[in-house]
Amino acid sequence: MKFSQSLIAIITLALVITFGNAYDPSPLQDFCVAVKSLNNGVFVNGKFCKDPKQAKADDFFFSGLNKAGNTNNDVKSNVTTVNVDQIPGLNTMGISLVRIDYAPYGQNPPHTHPRATEILVLIEGTLYVGFVSSNQDNNRLFAKILHPGDVFVFPIGMIHFQVNIGKIPAVAFAGLSSQNAGVITIANTVFGSKPPINPEILSQAFQLDANVVKDLEVKFASKK
């Protein structure tokens, strides 16, 4: 896939905006490369940090976002994440990145990021995207159809989604205002919890027959 200069500029702008509004605590040093061991390290907000003098270029590097993800799954999409686990140098930086591939009519189902606002730029295809505001705002739906070069923002904590409404694959990149934004996929979380939530509780909450809830719990539990 070849990116035009204008689309690359849009991606860069999106990341700059995301960095400028980072949700994670601001760093108090140039960098804090994450390590898994306390040996010769210091614990900082979720990760140990290596001695800065031992940092190297590879701590700030990742390769592979030019490759499409495997969309052969139930939702027909794939999210390739580049956060602090892939680039240790992102630790304390308050920013990360994802590539999202969508097969025709595939979707990134309703989910939320508990620690980040997301800004998405569409590179290829056509997406229908949106988020739903909180109960206090009467759960309003904010939605748009995106074409290549379009940008959409999903505020922190809001349930949001993307659907490929075209007959060809779609590709998007998104910046997130956290080194590890986290993700809670609504259906998987509610119906696939371990142990499962009592079906009677979900039956009342979703106004569904308890047997329907049980079937959903079996289905989503099998995906774990």
Score class of each variant (00 low, 15 high):
M1F: 06
Q5C: 15
Q5L: 14
I8F: 14
I8D: 11
I10E: 12
I11M: 13
L13G: 10
A14S: 15
F19G: 15
G20V: 03
N21T: 15
N21E: 12
A22R: 14
P27S: 09
P27T: 03
A34N: 01
V35A: 10
V35P: 14
K36F: 10
L38G: 15
G41T: 08
F48W: 08
F48C: 03
K50P: 02
D51W: 10
Q54N: 10
A55I: 09
F60V: 02
F61S: 13
G64V: 07
N70M: 03
T71C: 02
D74A: 15
V75A: 14
K76M: 07
T81A: 05
N83R: 05
V84G: 02
V84P: 06
I87K: 08
P88Y: 08
G89Y: 01
G94L: 06
G94I: 05
L97V: 09
D101Y: 05
D101F: 11
G106S: 12
Q107Y: 12
H111R: 14
H111E: 00
T112Q: 04
T117Y: 09
E118T: 06
I119L: 13
V121F: 04
L122M: 02
L127T: 03
Y128V: 02
G130P: 11
F131D: 06
V132Q: 12
Q136L: 10
D137F: 12
N139L: 15
K144F: 14
K144I: 09
P148W: 02
D150E: 01
D150S: 09
F152G: 08
F152W: 14
F152A: 09
F152E: 11
F154N: 05
F154C: 13
P155N: 03
G157W: 00
K167V: 00
P169Y: 01
A172N: 05
A174K: 04
L176P: 00
L176Y: 11
Q179Y: 08
G182I: 01
I186T: 05
G192Y: 03
K194L: 08
P195W: 04
N198T: 00
N198F: 00
L202N: 08
L202W: 01
Q204Y: 13
A205V: 11
N211E: 05
V213F: 13
V218W: 02
K219L: 12
